[in-house]
């Protein structure tokens, strides 16, 4: 479904990602691991079209998307749930969800998607009229994921969904991720939390200083000594 082929991306002429290749099949959860500054967020922002790559190709469902704008990528179903949630703080939960489905493909189906999201997150239903800025961190994460689902994601890219959440909420969010996986959604999961990711993802990539250091099924990655090393930045 997703093929990244020798991608080089950077800012101001300095590459951050060096020659990264990654694939993800339909219905798969792929984990993207690595220490801070390994390039995880740069990679998913490249997938969202925030920066033009210096070289390499990105293909999605057989289509070359390398030159597409962020808007076009949202319209074909590549949806990012950003790190730190980035909900619109001075808008209600309902308005945030409506904005999630504002792209041309999803717009007409918003009422149906809204029902689905609210059924998935009953907590949001109770908070529909409340400003998103007043929600707890966990509720904001629910809203951010809900917003991504409103966009009718085909590929959902979750950037650090467990960041700053209590263990109970982390468990809940990962339960949701499993449920979305069971519904057939393809998920790219960016995480700092190594063990949790290895448990939920089928395959993982470990990034180290902008390069893929380890890749393979979760069991392989788990047992590879380079994984821990990349993580500890040794």
């Amino acid at each position: 479904m997703l093929e990244i082929d020798h991608l080089v991306t950077g800012y101001g002429g300095v590459p951050v990602l060096h020659d990264v290749s990654l694939t993800l099949s339909a219905g798969e959860i792929v984990g993207l691991l690595g220490a801070n500054n390994a390039g995880k967020t740069t990679l998913i922002n490249s997938l969202s079209g925030m920066y033009a790559p210096m070289s390499g190709r990105i293909r999605f469902e057989g289509q070359d998307v390398t030159a597409m704008t962020p808007k076009q990528r949202v319209e074909i179903g590549i949806i990012q749930v950003p790190e730190g949630r980035l909900v619109f703080p001075e808008m209600s939960v309902r308005e945030n969800l409506l904005l999630g489905g504002i792209n041309a493909r999803a717009r007409a189906h918003r009422p149906r998607q809204m029902d689905h999201v609210l059924e998935l997150f009953p907590r949001l239903k109770e908070r529909l009229g409340q400003n998103a800025g007043t929600l707890s961190g966990g509720e904001q994460q629910m809203l951010a994921i809900g917003r991504g689902l409103m966009a009718e994601a085909k590929l959902l890219m979750l950037d650090e969904p467990s960041l700053g959440l209590s263990p109970l909420f982390v468990q809940y969010i990962f339960g949701i991720i499993d449920r979305l996986h069971a519904e057939g959604l393809s998920i790219l999961l960016i995480e700092q939390n190594l063990n949790l990711t290895l448990r939920h993802a089928q395959r993982c990539y470990v990034l180290e200083r902008g390069k893929v250091a380890v890749e393979g099924t979760s069991d392989v990655v788990k047992d590879d000594p380079r994984t821990r090393r990349a993580y500890l930045g040794l």
């Binding site: 969202s48 925030m50 962020p70 808007k71 949202v74 319209e75 949806i79 990012q80 950003p82 980035l86 909900v87 619109f88 703080p89 001075e90 808008m91 308005e95 409506l98 904005l99 999630g100 504002i102 792209n103 041309a104 917003r147 966009a151």
Partner: peptide
């Protein structure tokens, strides 16, 4: 709503496909 979204967080607005 797009105007307000861009005002509150332009990066996030772009991720919505705005």
């Amino acid at each position: 709503r797009s105007i307000r979204a861009v005002h509150q967080n332009a990066h996030s607005a772009a991720l919505m496909g705005i």
